[in-house]
Amino acid sequence: MATRERTKELIDGIYNAIIEMDEDAVTELCKTVIDEGIDAYYAVSEGLTKAMDRVGELYTNNEYFVPELLLCADALYTGLDILRPHIKSNSDEKKKQLIIGTIEGDIHDIGKNLVKIMFEAAGWVVHDLGKDVMLQRFVEEQARTHSDVIALSALMTTSMTAMPKAIAMIKAADPDVAVMVGGAPLTRDIAVSYGADGYADNAGEAVREANEMLKRIMK
């Protein structure tokens, strides 16, 4: 059993390696965590997830950009692949679920992928429908998964005009699900006018916005 100091050393190491985009170091440290009997769930939440929170801040503050965020995510997934099989399942814990996709007519998915990364890093179960997603697919996936949030992405100004129709279809089928939108041409005002419950200006803010949106809706 690792000492408290040793555990901290390894978790800090994972945290720093994620932020430094060092996939090899993350691999080595996560294997050591398992070898030394440290709780895998603790390593994920205190090492990987907290590091990605920091990466999100760096991205929001224009210190990190898409390349940096993608490489941090690569390191994150490497760590998750090693640690996840060792996490003891807790049937009492219900993870929040997200459906995400780039709207019909739009094939640009970098922004959508960054948002997906941030939700996965925060421990959400993500159902990624991909890009150029027909509007009905969101409705069908919600009927299948009963997710907490549906996130719609668009880069093209023309494609974003599909969002109000998508939101209306989703809400008609499931009035309780929260819908958030994002993408370069969108603003909070446009999001409101489209009937969305939430809007995130960038990937770094998306998870916080989703959680706040859920709190607002539950009131």
Partner: peptide
Amino acid sequence: LPDGEYEQAPSH
């Protein structure tokens, strides 16, 4: 080439 209701420009 764009052909759908919500498409504007050529895409990959």
